[in-house]
Design a protein around this nucleic acid. Structure first.
Lengths: 337, 337
DNA sequence: ATGAAAGCGCTAACAC
DNA sequence: GTGTTAGCGCTTTCAT
């Protein structure tokens, strides 16, 4: 028994001061049965006098409900996450939940051990928003009967509450926007091909081009890696090719920024010589010169929705499967013309 | 009693399977007394078979220690925080802690209620890294006898474990760097004057200028607000003045970026016509064109240190006061010449 | 309208 | 070398 450096009161103290039983204290606090107003008053006064704070550990042990959730992300330094995290936290706090923030750091092993820690902490549910989630992790959670909600990055359509992104609208808007401005050769710089989400984006791009193609559109997929440096290299490659495109759409904003720098370093003017479009709408895209036209993912709303879905599930385990699709949309800035 | 949708085993189950008492199970798990290797083996096998996970709520209730800490920040969208948060989380996980991430959203009331939630959650300690911390919050924590560590933004020298920033080295380096390159008129765009941290930065700037002044240096403080827009406005003001400085140091990176845009919009070339230096070294400073020369705060290390100090304190409450000073240093990039 | 007491899963003092 | 049992602070059933 570790010494608690604390003056913390408990039900017994309150009951003593208010001359009632601890059961009554509990019922006053939770409003779970009728207590005479007069008695209530005595209890509340005692609570105030003792600066009472409920012990959620004890309550959790007794009820099996902890009002705590785990949020598993890849890494908070990835600019995709801060807004999402904020969204989840806000909804959590409004509903009297607190959230354990956990990073997988792009490592499946770390992800798995994180899940173990969360289970031991008796969280009421888990939000899986890391892109490194595999079946071992999902099965672990299911085995222990834990509620969870996930971002289904690769549209695998997993049988659980989840949100998925529909890039099609945004990508289509991007292509329309370019075609409207007379662009005929549009390249796409992809993410790493082993990521489901990269594949989805590539497919959506090709699909959208084909939707619109009256035979006069040319396109090509160039490999990138979702990092600045990959975008930079891909752009260098593009410059060397015979026919330089007049516009480039990139699989994410970092790629777009890398490409932008690359083109600028080669003396090309943006958007005069070449137009660039990113995807994600991370914060810094509006700070750049020229600011980046990009396809928006509403990360803040995504965060809010994830937490809301989870809380729904916790409140009503028998709820039918919840799926939400987040459409994307084009944000026009200075990097296209 | 809420139904727990769980197959979770407890000591009783393990004890039954292994044909020992629950005390023995506990001692095997915690290594708290000698148990025959053979008995240990039976217990461990039973644990494995039952996929046992300790219930940290029960353990916490019994021991008074939860291996949980609260991290209070202003808002994760402030680019100052992600790296700090990552640092704290990494050290926490290494030490078997988990962290509740809480935002004050620049609101003292929200901060106070956050603290209440954390106390009820029986956290072992709190890291206060929000810039909105006042005495009411600190007193609340002290009243309840909770361990805490804080970022003493305004160098108030509060009597608790804390870290403070020493901007002097970095600012001095920045000024030296400029003077070495022949700059004689150096302006400073400040943060909001009601923030202690802004005041400290202004004072350090003036001090550093005076240290170096052989009578040929001119300076001036222009008001900003630590946001893009404030930097933009301040720079506009500067351009209108009689004597335009050849260099500007800014109280934070956002201010510097705002100023940079403002100067560029007015047709000035950076760094040819005017040099700019920021402070914080947030991630996007290296992505800009031109990339921003800035004064670094090692946020990742700050995060790691904060958590380490807290864990030290939790492990040894009688430890003497811990104070760490983080020096700043100049990172030279393209925005100065 | 309120109290007594069992029990949540664990730790640790005490017993043998 | 191991077992028994009294809590930790709360909820909740059963009594009255």
């Amino acid at each position: 028994m570790v010494l608690k450096g604390c003056i913390l009161a408990n039900y017994e103290d309150i009951a003593g001061l208010a001359r009632v039983s601890i059961a009554t204290v509990s019922h006053v606090i939770n409003g779970t049965r009728f207590v005479l107003p007069e008695t209530q008053k005595r209890v509340r006064e005692a609570m105030k006098k003792l600066k009472y704070r409920p012990n959620l550990y004890a309550r959790g042990l007794a009820t099996g409900k902890t009002n705590t959730v785990g949020l598993v992300i890849s890494n908070i330094n990835n600019p995709f996450y801060p807004e999402l995290v904020q969204g989840t936290e806000e909804v959590a706090v409004k509903n009297n939940y607190n959230v354990f923030l956990c990073s997988t750091d792009y490592d499946l092993k770390k992800g798995l051990s994180t899940i173990g820690a969360l289970i031991s902490r008796k969280i009421d549910g888990i939000i899986l928003a890391s892109s490194q989630i595999d079946d071992s992790i999902i099965n672990e959670i299911i085995d222990y009967g834990i509620n969870f909600v996930m971002v289904d990055w690769g549209n695998r359509n997993i049988k659980t509450d989840s949100i998925i992104f529909d890039y099609r609208v945004g990508i289509q808007e991007a292509i329309n926007h370019l075609v409207d401005r007379g662009h005929k050769r549009i390249f796409f710089i992809s993410g790493p091909k082993k990521h489901k989400t990269s594949i989805v984006r590539i497919n959506n791009f090709v699909e959208s081009i084909k939707n619109l193609n009256k035979g006069d559109l040319e396109y090509k997929i160039v490999g990138g890696n979702h990092k600045l440096e990959g975008g930079y290299k891909a752009a260098k490659e593009i410059i060397k090719s015979d026919k330089i495109p007049s516009a480039v759409i990139c699989s994410n904003d970092f790629t777009a920024i890398g490409a932008m720098h690359s083109f600028m370093d080669s003396g090309l003017k943006i958007p005069d010589d070449i137009s660039i479009i990113g995807l994600d709408n991370i914060k810094l895209t509006e700070i750049l010169k020229p600011s980046l036209t990009t396809i928006e993912l509403e990360r803040y709303n995504i965060g809010k929705t994830l937490m809301q879905l989870l809380i729904n599930r916790v409140d009503k385990p028998e709820l039918p499967l919840q799926k939400k699709v987040f459409k994307t949309k084009l944000i026009v800035r200075e990097s296209t013309s």
